[in-house]
Structure formats: structure tokens, C-alpha cells
Design a protein around this nucleic acid. Structure first.
Lengths: 222, 222
DNA sequence: CGATGAAAATTTGAATTCATAATAACTTTG
DNA sequence: CAAAGTTATTATGAATTCAAATTTTCATCG
């Protein structure tokens, strides 16, 4: 791993720590070793500690006074709660998007959708997820609400390490694709309320939950 | 102002800075004088700078690389966007609240509602706003979704300095109270969808916008 | 041998120091 | 006198240092 280049150092460090968490190098609940990461990144403790505080306010890290930082544990309830939130945000995004989206953007989303269908038919899960995410991001972008987009990415970041699970039952997958069919129709007709409703209820997110293995069930919580 | 006591110092400092912003001691767009605040709070630059970085991630402050921190300017669009977001979050809170709320909590909200009506009839604006906020907070709490509550308070914090404007037209006020009547009914019948809908559309927030004077119209933006 | 407690080592929290970038003040020149 | 360039001052970014809290080690005792 290359040393970090000095520019908005604390944010770079924060992103690198998020990478480590996402990659699993820092597991859920792990203590975050200040000294070691300083050496690894080639920075002093000051920017690293700033990064940790920001990550704590973003919800990925937990700070225990005088006892260091930990990777925040994800309980099943926390993940469900987060998905509920993301659903609500996407719902709003859908309504707003229909008010602001351009014909060009609709065409782009349609293209993404068709590409996604291709990946669905050939069962290319990773590609499917990638394009799927692009579609949702396009809708978010079309909402023209920056705060909404920021908040959504923050939530998305929090649960990233348990998303896009490898195992997805055929039923769930088919249902998700059907939802997307309806979404496309709603967008093309600019039916905001309808699109919002679909996105809020879009099962994809909620159903993934069943397949997650890394998360801690609340019953076995520390 | 008394010196800060050393305990989770950076968070204390952050809260004090938020107070200064809310109070108007630090106006929108103002440069935040590091050295001066350090002396004022009796702390060194380290915790102060940590606080600023956290506040930046929370959206109340803006960091310009090598050029210090500023109080984030609120444009009309930003406030509108934030209200849209808060509406969506309250909508979700309403739906969830109806699933989880206890009879006791419903009774409490009913009490708050009646008290609020009293303040409405006697035109006690400050008291009305206070109780009004308590009602919304109670619904949020009944959602049993911590992430939702956190996000909502964060958004609320961002626009605090322009909320609860002194001037509220009678029409707006009456409409807000009518919305609340419907809310109470929906809660007592545990009609989640309905309550959610009311809260999402609850005009109160959106209408306040018209009366704000501190915010910068996007046209005259720097 | 396990539990208890004291001392050492480590880690954290915060202040200080140092290097660099930005701003202000001051010349100099056209 | 204004504009441009230069120097001085200040503010910022990051490393280092110092003090206090925590954890570990290890000896002692039951």
C-alpha cells in the first residue's frame, strides 16, 4: 500500500480507514490501533485522530473515552433501521427526481436498466449489483437535493460491509427486477408519487438482510 | 462565559460553537477565529480543530483548505432541501411509530397536543413552538429507529438558526394546527400510512420558509 | 494454583512546537 | 498616486511532546 499524499489529510485517512473496514482488515468490533495505522499511513496521530472523530460522527466508528476507537458493530436491528431510512430517502428522491429529471437522464437510466436486465438474465451478480447501484444513484442525482444525496451515501457507507451479499435467492432477485421495471415506467411517465412509493417499498434492500452472515444478531450482543 | 470542563472535550467545544452560531455570535458565512475561540473556551487548538472537522461533517461548518473554517451559509435552496428531507424522515417516523408506540405514549402525545392547542388559542408562539417540537420528537422517539432520530436532529440542527420565525401568518398557523389534529387521529388509530402521509406533507415546515429573513437567496450568492 | 494488588508499559487526550501557506504591510517603480 | 513586487506577519496543517488514564505484567498472598 502506498503512503498517503498530504492533501486534506484527515479525509484521506478517514477514507483509507473505511477501506480497511470494508475490506474486512478491520473487523466489526475490532479495536482500531492508532499507532499501527499511523505507521501504515505514514502520518502522525493528529490527522488520524481527526479522521476517527469524523468517522464516529458518520457512524462507522465508535469512540470510547480514554479507551480508543472501535469499528462499530452492526446489529441486525441497526441494519434494518438503516434500510428503512434508505428506503424513505429513495422514496423522496423518486418524487423529486420526477420533478427535475431531464429527458436525457431518463434515457440514460433506461440504458442502465436494459444493461441490468442483461446481467440479470445471464446471472452476473456482481455486474448486476454495480449497474443496479448506478440506477439508484442516478435517481438520487436527479432529485437535485444535495443534502439528500449526502445523507444517502453516508447511510450506504455504514452498511456497505454487509451489502451485496453473494447469495440472493431467485425469488428475491426476480422481485427486485420487477420493482425496477415499474420504476422505469414511473420515471418515464414522471409519476413522482408512484415512483416514490415503489422506491420506499423496493424490497431488494430489505430482502438482502436475510442473507447477511457478518452481522451480529441483537440477542448475542455484547 | 465559564471555561469548559475537560470531558469529551472536542464534543463540548463543538456544542459551544453550535451555540455561538445559533445565538448569532457567529453569523452565516463568518470566518471562525481559531485562536480567539481557543482563548474563549480555554482549550488548545487540537480539540477545537477536531470539533470543527466534526461540525463540517455534520454540515454546520465549511472548511476551506488552508483558509480556515466558516459558518456554512444557508441558501434558500439548502433550507428547502433540508425541509424536504425532514419531511421524508418524519413520514417514515410516523409509519414506524404506529407499529411500536405504546398506549401510554399515545396518551402523552394527546396531552401535548391539547396543551399545544391552548397555546395556539392564546397565541403564545414560543410556547406553541416548544410543545409542537415535543410532539414531533415524541413521534420520532416512538419510531424506535435510532439512526432516524440522529439524522433528524442533525438536519434540525443545521437549520435551527432560521427556524421558529417570529412571524407566522394566521393561515399558516391554522393549517399547521389542522394537520396536527389529523396526526393525532391517525396515531390514535395507529394508521401508519396515513400518519406518514400527513407528516410528509405537513406544511408547517415548508411554510416557515416564506418568513425567513436571515437566509441568503441563491441569486445573490457569492 | 488462582486471586489480588502494585509497578511498569502502553495508550489516549490535549498542549505545544514546527513548517508551510495565505494574508497584510510596505517598498519600489512607472 | 496606483500597480506590482517584496517582505513581514499571521493563520493553518501536521508532528511532536507531555500528562493522565488504562492495560499489562508480575510479584505476593491466601
Amino acid at each position: 500500500m502506498s503512503k498517503i499524499q498530504h492533501r486534506n489529510l484527515y479525509r484521506e485517512v478517514a477514507d483509507r480507514i473505511l477501506d480497511l473496514i470494508e475490506q474486512g482488515d478491520l473487523a466489526s468490533g475490532d479495536r482500531i490501533p492508532e499507532r499501527e495505522l499511523c505507521e501504515r499511513f505514514g502520518v502522525s496521530r493528529t490527522p488520524l485522530r481527526e479522521a476517527l472523530k469524523v468517522l464516529a460522527s458518520e457512524g462507522s466508528v465508535e469512540l470510547l473515552p480514554n479507551r480508543g476507537a472501535r469499528v462499530r458493530q452492526l446489529t441486525l436491528k441497526m441494519v434494518k433501521d438503516t434500510y428503512d431510512l434508505m428506503g424513505a430517502l429513495e422514496g423522496l428522491a423518486g418524487e423529486l427526481a420526477c420533478q427535475h429529471i431531464t429527458d436525457g437522464e431518463i434515457a440514460e437510466i433506461r440504458q442502465l436498466h436494459d444493461r441490468m436486465l442483461g446481467h440479470y438474465r445471464s446471472r452476473e451478480l456482481a455486474d448486476y449489483f454495480r449497474v443496479n447501484r448506478q440506477i439508484h444513484e442516478s435517481i438520487l442525482a436527479a432529485s437535485r437535493n444535495e443534502a439528500l444525496q449526502e445523507m444517502y451515501s453516508n447511510l450506504s457507507q455504514r452498511v456497505k460491509r454487509v451489502r451485496y451479499s453473494k447469495q440472493m435467492t431467485d425469488d428475491f432477485w426476480r422481485q427486485a427486477v420487477e420493482d425496477h421495471e415499474a420504476m422505469i415506467e414511473a420515471i418515464e411517465q414522471r409519476e413522482g408519487r408512484w415512483l416514490g412509493q415503489i422506491l420506499r417499498d423496493h424490497l431488494c434492500n430489505k430482502l438482502e438482510v436475510a442473507a447477511m452472515d457478518e452481522i451480529i444478531d441483537d440477542r448475542q450482543r455484547a
